[in-house]
Amino acid sequence: MKDKTIGYAFRASLPVMAGYLVLGMGFGVLLHDQGYSWWWAAVMSLLIYAGSLQYLAVDLMAAGAGIITTALMSLVVNFRHLFYGITMLERYKKAGRVRPYLIFALTDETFSLVCQGDLPDGVREKGYYFWVSLFNHCYWIVGSVLGTFVGNILGEHTQGIDFSMTALFVIIFIQQWETAKDHRPALIGLGVSLASLLIFGPDSFLIPGMVGITLALLAMRKFPARKEGE
């Protein structure tokens, strides 16, 4: 059978390409404003590879933050990534020598593309994970470097384009909803996140939200899903 892995991974990654180029450029522009040249953006996107943290990094570097503060901020901002590892634990176990890279590159967007199990015939699972991870990483690096060159040339005409990322997550949410037999995890995720957002506010809702989701999912385990048609 013809191997369609790379082409399939590339098509799957297109929405992330749009999102990462735009968000990466946004980061590059901010970093450039602080006097850092293009290769700093490249190094940061290569080594850190975490969108929201890199935006924050610009502030931390501008303010001359200490290492402890920076480490704590990184921990808090990226703590949600623990979830992704737990989800991909079994599937990435068999990935062989690319496994460390797959784990390193497990961002929100990459997770959203690898967490859905079903792949069509002719697409190798391991290869799909690898190419999606690599393509996304490249988009992010390219976007952030471009940002340091173009600066604010594009001006306001790109305002609102970063919505592509939101759209991607909404679509994956819908797809998961349609394939899931049990909708309770999705409802728990939605309900607990919103409640946490209302209580703790936009800057600190993630960690209480994650704790709440985990507890609710563990509690849910005690109540098996009803069978279809009951």
Partner: peptide, 12 residues
Amino acid sequence: VLPGAVMAMLVV
């Protein structure tokens, strides 16, 4: 069970 819940969290 996390993927479903986490995707909702990412939308929020």
